[in-house]
Design a protein around this nucleic acid. Structure first.
Lengths: 190, 190
DNA sequence: TGCTTAAATGAATAATTATTCATTAATTTT
DNA sequence: AAAATTAATGAATAATTATTCATTTAAGCA
């Protein structure tokens, strides 16, 4: 028997991300995905039962990938601020390097494709971020605000800044990244 | 002759916003919009040439509405921090009260419907925000960073926080709003 | 009141897009 | 090397959705 080409799924994912970035989830069709991935339309249906499953699978994949990256180089024994900066940088780097993934995930949250279960399942992945913030509060280094409020403050400024940089086609230099972290830290610290 | 019912356009807009919030731009159809607006499908085409024009018109309308709101109660002679807070509050209030509009506009930026011209045109509306920030920098009250960087920092944290509040179905109390502004101000100030 | 004009309707049609399936190609197994 | 099995193809079909249009309805005007 003929084995499946294990590069195909990745090709399909790449193609979908690229098309969603260009035209949005609203504009993406199965035949376009196939063409972009250099495979036949029918082949898509060997790997995914239908469009909805393809989108859900890619969504889950993106969430898993990002969660993995967020804690790279992080060691809980680090001094708190250094740890926070490590993770903050990981968040930023992810949004820059995997911009297409980030856009795709954002769009999925308001789409008819992603099921509630898929959303719930991927939420858990980000639990370690909570502990980090809780920890900072315990050490009285962060403001005494709701953890999710502190987290969204941090994530929001990163996300929006990366979007701006991408749309305006500007590179975020070392300098700018330092300024961004200062703003974030000054905002969070007690 | 029979005159146009001038409530219809607003009905169509409302219906579209509501459906986009529920299913995303990817999931919205002309017949659904018509049904939600309590009119016949054909009637949509009396008011808008086609789907793309409807989406573009609503996008422009949303952008205009939001720009108008941002400077409510603002007077350039106010002390800087008070002026900033006024506008900051307006931004926040808009995102909360007109959440559907905000989501719609976000989705439009990655959709095949909105033309580049439409995007460019609506950009100008936000020029007054720039002057505000520039002003703060001149008075040495804000960090010496790029104006757009300061702006996206401010907008990003607002946007993400409102999204979180909406999804988690939480109300943003006076207290929390104060905390949010503190975070923003501490992040921006020199 | 009847005539004129344009709005409103929604079923019919056109266009687009998802999905299937008969066929071919590529492996593995015997 | 032939048989068996599954991947891959892409044209054909099914399903969905945008758009049109013949008809009806409602308002203004003579």
């Amino acid at each position: 028997m003929k084995p499946r080409d294990d590069k195909k799924i990745e090709q399909i994912y790449e193609a979908t991300l690229s098309l969603v970035k260009a035209n949005g989830l609203a504009g993406v069709t199965m035949s376009e995905i196939a063409k972009e991935a250099h495979i036949a339309t029918g082949t898509l249906y060997i790997y995914f039962k239908n469009k909805s499953e393809l989108i859900n699978a890619l969504f889950t994949e993106c969430r898993n990938r990002s969660a993995k990256i967020y804690f790279k180089n992080y060691d809980p024994s680090m001094p708190f601020k250094k740890g926070l900066k490590t993770i903050w940088l990981n968040l930023l780097t992810y949004r820059i390097k995997k911009f297409e993934e980030a856009i795709f995930v954002d769009q999925c949250f308001h789409s008819p494709f992603i099921t509630q279960t898929t959303k719930e399942l991927t939420k858990k992945l980000f639990a370690p971020l909570f502990s980090l913030i809780e920890n900072g509060k315990k050490q009285k280094l962060l403001k005494k605000a709701d953890t999710l409020l502190l987290l969204t403050f941090m994530a929001g400024s990163i996300n929006e800044t990366v979007k701006y940089a991408k749309y305006a086609n500007r590179k975020l230099s070392e300098d700018i990244i330092e300024q961004m972290f200062s703003m974030c830290w000054d905002g969070l610290k007690s």
